[in-house]
Design a binder for these strands. Structure first.
Lengths: 339, 339
DNA sequence: TTGTACGCGTTATCAT
DNA sequence: ATGATAACGCGTACAA
């Protein structure tokens, strides 16, 4: 193994000092054109390679950014990360990913290890509704490095977030179902302690009241975001004396489960029951009975998150909180088209 | 902002030297129990936080691992990364992800920036069939840090890889179609310069010949791995004088496109044409006409890749090349079940 | 068991 | 324009 060459080696070879070499390598103006040239040339000859670690230690800037999500193997989160990585790559940053599996302790641990690794910022979709009471969280604030929430945010003064308008999304989905003639609209929600799920629920409620439809608590079911939970929810709904004629689900996966159960019971979609999901996972489009859903433009969400981060590192002094709210798009497919 | 506390600060407070503090913090045996205790206690009191960057510079070990893939927003790659991250987390490593979009230059650039960032290893699915001729690639070898291929590998002596048995997968899929009574079996392949696609093709060929079915070049179509390409391929196939009665695709996405085109032309699946895809993407299971596919157990593949990496860093001297070959599983669904 | 002194590779602040 | 030196925060061989 050839020992790695440092700026010292190349300085020795040229009978100059390491400082000069460093200047040549960093486009420092205080250097003559000639020496700069020869330094760059011999650097190339000696296969010199920057040690970003040493730079990071010296400059207090690692050019690493931590991204924390619950899990990466869902199209929604994977797409966000795609957007983040693509955008940050252009600015020389690397993306470190961490998964919490929705576990609060994992989330705290991930924050701590990221901070110890001296990341320049943390972008996260929260797994803990009380994150602001968490010590690890406070460490981020203390360090004064940018912290950004995307998707699962918590509204905290001074902390920027990038989300879609979940209230509007819930409203749009519900209004659409009403427009299709549905009158008893169920809502499959997830933990409403998270703002995104509460907002979708509130949008749903508002659309109902705007259309003079009485809100019926028994039509709201809290589920996990998976197929089995969707089936269970549908079973409950179909047992009601007065079952729903539509389901708006905060998750594509529970929407799919509900659809499977409904069809298994011989009930027709969309004629008897219309269904709208959430997130526009690829399968919703591919199915023969394609599923209507809310598109959250995750790649754009990721890119935007990255851009806000870049802005914040550039204006470290005059940091301004940004609450970016992207527009959700209702995508109407067969599961809710009665025309 | 409270200035970050270093081992120096805590040494000063205790009237000892930084070296002793370091020893206390690193379970160094050369220290008394009593001083160790008090150091740890005051470290906690002063909110001391390890600077992994400084450690990394000193020890030549960053505890960061680079993972390079074409893109993260496919369930297959996302699941692999999930497996890698989960496994590596337990060993204190962070995962840096890089996407190439199948661009060779991006791949080389990613390698270079990862090396400059002093990662302890690189795990990658290659985007360049001539990667071994690449300078960036040679840099990895020179640095003597572990390099592992997963999925899209290239067989290079001394380099470990974790893949499924693609030949066997191609064979299994084809044999299954033959068992269902198909006689003219088409194959949608991707760039056969990549070993995985060539192996799947070879397995397909072998199954044909083992069953005394004549190989027909006109039934093999090279496509991209997306829906449109699948549609185009199906159009070509259906125009043949003697169209196929089965399609084995190296990609679930082109399989889906083919299915859409076939159905659009009023041809029945599986009665007229059976279809088998590859990768077991979630949508293949969810569709009403569920799609048979080959499962590559991506999470397991990721975990295995991580484990092999850990082994290699632990036995840096007696490094032994490992070629792990996981077993593919044929998952038979409606698109190829005629019973 | 503890302290001293130096090095990891780089950059920034002084001089010259 | 260039050189000398210190510093980033930590770990360790050597000496005490």
């Amino acid at each position: 193994m050839t020992k790695k060459t440092t700026i010292y080696d190349i300085a020795k070879k040229l009978n100059i000092t390491a400082a000069t070499v460093s200047r040549a390598l960093n486009n420092n103006p205080k250097i003559s054109k000639s020496t700069k040239e020869i330094v760059l040339r011999t650097a190339a000859e000696m296969n010199y390679e920057q040690n970003k670690l040493a730079q990071a230690l010296k400059n207090g800037k690692s050019f690493n950014v931590g991204v924390i999500i619950s899990r990466i193997d869902s199209n929604f989160f994977a797409s966000i990360i795609r957007g983040i990585e693509e955008e940050l790559f252009n600015h020389g940053y690397h993306v470190i990913i961490c998964q919490t599996n929705n576990n609060e302790n994992m989330e705290a641990e991930n924050i701590n290890t990221l901070l110890n690794a001296q990341v320049d910022g943390i972008l996260m979709s929260i797994s803990n509704i009380d994150i602001d009471k968490n010590d690890a969280f406070k460490r981020i604030l203390n360090k004064k490095i940018p912290l950004l929430f995307f998707d699962r945010k918590k509204s905290i003064p001074g902390i920027s977030s990038i989300t879609i308008d979940d209230f509007s999304a819930g409203y749009k989905a519900t209004q659409h179902l009403i427009d299709e003639g549905c009158k008893r609209i169920s809502h499959l929600t997830v933990d409403r302690n998270f703002e995104i799920f509460r907002d979708r629920f509130l949008g749903y409620q508002k659309a109902l009241s705007d259309n003079n439809i009485l809100f019926d608590e028994s039509l709201v079911i809290e589920t996990k975001s998976n197929i089995e939970a969707g089936k269970d929810a549908a079973k409950k709904l179909l047992k009601l004396k007065n079952p729903p004629d539509a389901i708006f689900s905060s998750s594509d996966f529970s929407a799919l489960g509900a659809i499977q159960e409904i069809k298994a019971q011989g009930i027709r979609i969309p004629q008897d029951i219309c269904v709208v999901g959430f997130s526009n996972e690829p399968f919703t489009k591919f199915m023969e009975l394609s599923i209507s859903s809310i598109d959250q433009s995750p790649i754009e969400m990721g890119k935007t998150t990255a851009r806000v981060f870049i802005e914040q590192v550039k204006n470290k002094e005059k940091y301004i909180e940004q609450k970016v709210v992207l527009d959700p798009t209702l995508i109407v497919r067969k599961s809710s088209s009665r025309k």
